[in-house]
């Protein structure tokens, strides 16, 4: 298999397989969580559920003052990584073409130098966060294989995409193939690791907020 065959394989059967594992896995887990259900609450509600729920989704998405004071580096680098990752993923022209083919929706792309810069910032933030994690004995103690694995599968698509755009080391088609393969690895790992937080975090925030709202307390 030469590098062009490899590109065809990752764009074809491998991509299909990765999408099947990703979609099936994510939906399976979400339905599984929702099917756990909730015990009927017989107490008289002391407030609404939707309003406080949505408010908590917002309030917990913003850095909490106490947390920020204790861990400013984690909060800032975490935000930088997530924003950079979303810009790189959703505002680069080749990616938008993919989403258009998939969902039929299209939006304007950012100029490539800006996407390029956001990819570099994302990579730096990821490397910095790893170093920061390793530098502290407590954080190191709390980290397991999955944390490093998830870090790796998140870094690889950004890194290979950057290398492909700049044609570094290998010809473009080989790097593009590696980039798509890295994305497939991420998709496959997604439902089985805490990458699932992408889909569960807003539901969880809403759930906490709604429960508190019903009891008439601030979440």
């Amino acid at each position: 298999m030469n590098s062009v065959d490899f590109l065809q394989w990752v764009r074809g059967p491998a991509f299909d397989a990765a999408v099947v594992i990703f979609v099936l896995g994510v939906i399976f887990r979400l339905f599984g969580i929702l099917m756990l259900g909730k015990k009927p609450d017989l107490a008289e509600p002391r407030g609404g559920e939707w309003g406080p729920g949505l408010r908590t989704v917002l309030s917990r998405s913003l850095p909490d003052r106490g947390t920020f004071r204790r861990e400013p580096v984690t909060v800032v680098a975490g935000y930088v990584f997530h924003i950079g990752f979303f810009i790189t993923l959703f505002l680069s022209a080749p990616h938008i073409e993919l989403f258009h083919a998939w969902f039929g929706l299209r939006w304007p792309a950012l100029p490539t130098p800006l996407v390029d810069a956001s990819a570099v910032i994302t990579l730096l933030a990821l490397v910095f966060l790893l170093a920061y994690r390793l530098a502290n004995p407590v954080r190191r103690f709390l980290s397991g294989f999955e944390d490093y694995f998830v870090w790796g599968v998140t870094l690889l698509p950004v890194l290979t995409g950057y290398l492909a755009y700049h044609h570094l080391r290998l010809p473009y088609h080989a790097l593009l193939a590696l980039h798509i393969l890295a994305v497939e690895l991420l998709l496959v790992a997604f439902p089985f690791t805490h990458l699932m937080h992408t889909f569960t975090l807003f539901v969880a925030r809403w759930y906490n907020g709604a429960a508190s709202g019903r009891r008439g307390v601030v979440s």
Binding site: G12, F15, D16, H95, E97, L98
Partner: peptide, 8 residues
């Protein structure tokens, strides 16, 4: 070029 070749 960035699109998968199958009916994803």
């Amino acid at each position: 070029l960035s699109l998968p070749t199958g009916a994803v």
